[in-house]
Design a protein around this nucleic acid. Structure first.
Lengths: 247, 247
DNA sequence: CGCCAGCTTGAACGAGGTCAACGGGAGTGG
DNA sequence: CCACTCCCGTTGACCTCGTTCAAGCTGGCG
């Protein structure tokens, strides 16, 4: 894995004062990008702290789990966004092109690795500055943006599950998720109320009813879970279930 | 498929003036829900137009493709969100529980059907009123919310692809998506620049390189696509490719 | 020229799908 | 109360699509 190129000051055009004052005005992808929603004053301000960055094929912009340091707009080229399982299985959760914004509002850690497909130029916007642009939104808007970021992360995890996990890993991951959600609601995370049918579970996990049923039986026989009475599934071996979930 | 219960006025507690003025204050899920980000004044205002709604198991709240009429917060119970292919294959793209918000900001049409898993109570917020709450956010925040909604819809489509489509359908859908994105960027949608490797395509589509390669060959032999020179794929039979994509 | 990475093709295998049968609990009607 | 039905979950037997393993092929690059 190659390392990224160092940060460079934003290239400035010295030939005209307007461009010097607002390099974003000359940006080729502005009409495509989120920047088109900003005022000239905001752009001038932003351009002072934005940094131009260049990647070659295979270079990584950041890694899954890294602390989020800001947002990136792709000026040219393309990148892939991917997640890995411990054993190396990989799920690409998105491709992004010219004009696209990489990064979700208010995320603290990156949920995927970003790697250039070919020579790629990006504009890096520092986290604080970017978030200042949405700071004047009310708490409700900010809550919605946070929810959207969490939703995106959940969707990416589900893509990893659907694209790369085995039936056993899918079911185990699903039960752990149900358990987490139950805890959030203040319920017992070891004794899950499972309100959906086996068919629904299959349609969520990309499996058939039969496979879900067989896999539930397998976990039950292994002593990982128990089915005391109907809609309840009890997690009797949390470490075992976590291990079965893969990663 | 059962029909939904009729809209009912929000139940009001006549015993105390505070509760009459602000029924949301008594809402059991408020601490969980987005409503916790609203001021009392906003809640009072909102409660005048919000409608309480009850679903029984199997009742649908709305259908994929319906015009979005508003947003819903789940007060009790649980729902499933799903998408269908023409032949009936189904992918559940999410389950939602007490306190969750159903609906993406600024979406015009619902991207999935919502159906109750069991008896479920919801609070319906009309589209206009809800969007008024985020109207004072700057154009940038609104742009980000719109992007997030589009991202969510794309993620749900990808879940359908990964969970329920065959290798041929996955590849065809992917090529059509690349074509659409190329058109957005002002490029020729019939002559796609494919910047990623076969391995990357596989890792995006939940397939192996070999399967991608075989499937590309199959489409080429069928005359649906052509590979004139390396990173270019030409769509020679758009209706054929669309048909191969499934739905 | 030789090496290597990416792509393709073939052959065999296997995880999960398909098809079929059965059992149990809830609802319904006699 | 029982008989019947229906739906859901489970289990078994078989099959298929995509994976795995292996081998060549091609083009770019030192």
């Amino acid at each position: 894995m190659k390392t990224v190129s160092p940060l460079l000051p934003q290239a400035q055009d010295a030939s005209g004062s307007l461009e010097v004052a607002n390099p974003c005005a000359a940006c080729a992808v502005r009409p495509l990008a989120v920047c088109s929603s900003l005022t000239n004053a905001e752009l001038v301000d932003l351009s002072k702290v934005s940094r131009h960055r260049t990647l070659q094929a295979g270079d990584s912009l950041f890694f899954e789990g890294d602390e989020a340091d800001g947002y990136h707009i792709i000026q040219s080229g393309a990148v892939k966004l991917y997640k890995l399982l411990e054993d190396g299985r990989r799920q690409i959760v998105g491709f992004m092109f010219k004009g696209d914004l990489v990064g979700q509002a208010y995320q603290e850690h990156h949920n995927f690795t970003v790697e250039a497909l070919g020579p790629t130029e990006l504009c890096h916007l520092p986290k604080e500055k970017f978030e200042l642009l949405i700071a004047d939104s009310g708490p409700f808007s900010r809550r919605l943006l946070t929810l959207a970021s969490a939703g995106a992360a959940a969707a990416e995890n589900q893509m990893l599950l659907l694209g790369r996990k085995s039936a056993l890993e899918r079911l185990a991951s699903f039960l752990l998720w149900l358990s987490d959600r139950a805890r959030e609601r203040g319920e017992d995370p070891a004794r899950i109320d499972v309100p959906m049918s086996r068919t629904d579970m299959g349609d969520y996990l990309g499996l058939t009813v039969e496979t879900v049923s067989r896999t539930v039986t397998k976990l039950k026989k292994a002593g990982t879970i128990a089915l005391p009475d109907r809609p309840i599934i009890e997690i009797t071996d949390l470490p075992g279930l976590t291990a079965a979930a893969g990663a």
